[in-house]
Amino acid sequence: MKNKFNDLALAILRVGFSGMLLTHGVPKIKILLENPGGFSDPLGVGNTVSLILALIGEVVAPIFIILGLKTRIAAIPAIGTMAVAAFIVHAQDSFGTKEKALLYLIGFIVIALVGAGKYSVDKK
C-alpha cells in the first residue's frame, strides 16, 4: 500500500544522498584539470580514465538523480563507483573506513530499485 509520504521520502533520499556525494566528487574536478595522473587507478584502466569514471559516478550521476532525470539508469554509475570504493579501494581498510562507501552504495541501490518518485523530471 502506498503511503502519501512515499514520494516525498524518495525525493529526500535522492537529493540527500546525491547532494552529499557531490561533496566528494566536485573536488575531483580540480584534480582532472590540474593533475589527473595523480589519481589512483584501482581498476587498472589508467589514472585519467579512473578519475573520469569517478567523476561520472560522483558528479554527473548525482546531478541526474537530484533532478530525477533517468534516475534508475543514473544510479548505476553511482553504485559502481561506491562498490569500487568499498570493495577495491578500501578492501583492506577497517569497516569504519569503508562504511561511508557502503552506506552510499545501499542508498543508491534503493534509488535504482524504486526510481525517482512523483517529484522528479521523469514524472513531469
Results as ranks from 00 to 15, higher is better:
Ile31Glu: 15
Glu58Thr: 11
His24Ile: 13
Phe64Lys: 06
Arg72Phe: 04
Leu67Ile: 10
Arg72Val: 05
Gly37Met: 09
Gly46Val: 02
Ile29Lys: 07
Phe39Val: 04
Ile29Glu: 08
Leu53Ser: 11
Leu21Glu: 09
Asn47Ala: 12
Ile63Pro: 10
Pro62Leu: 01
Leu55Asp: 02
Pro62Cys: 01
Ile52Phe: 12
Gly38Pro: 00
Asp41Gln: 04
Phe64Met: 13
Ile56Glu: 11
Gly68Thr: 03
Thr71Leu: 03
Leu53Trp: 13
Ile76Asp: 05
Gly44Tyr: 05
Lys28Pro: 05
Ile56Arg: 09
Ile73Val: 13
Ser40Asn: 13
Arg72Lys: 10
Thr23Glu: 14
Gly38Cys: 02
Thr71Phe: 02
Ser40Gln: 15
Lys30Asn: 14
Gly38Ala: 07
Leu32Arg: 03
Glu58Pro: 07
Gly19Lys: 07
Pro62Glu: 00
Gly37Ile: 09
Ile66Phe: 05
Leu32Asp: 04
Pro36Gly: 09
Gly25Trp: 01
Leu43Cys: 14
Ile73Tyr: 13
Leu22Pro: 03
Leu22His: 06
Asp41Gly: 03
Ser50Glu: 03
Leu22Asp: 03
Pro62Arg: 00
Leu32Ala: 11
Ile66Gln: 00
Gly25Asn: 07
Pro42Lys: 03
Pro36Trp: 07
Ile66Val: 10
Gly68Val: 01
Ile29Thr: 11
Pro36Glu: 09
Val45Cys: 14
Ser50Ala: 11
Ile65Ser: 01
Gly68Asn: 04
Val49Glu: 07
Gly19Ala: 08
Lys28Asp: 09
Lys28Gly: 06
Gly38Tyr: 01
Gly44Gln: 08
Leu67Val: 10
Phe64Val: 09
Lys30Met: 15
Gly25His: 08
Thr71Arg: 01
Gly46Asp: 00
Gly38Thr: 00
Phe39His: 10
Gly25Cys: 11
Leu33Arg: 06
Leu43Asn: 15
Gly46Phe: 01
Val45Lys: 15
Gly57Asp: 04
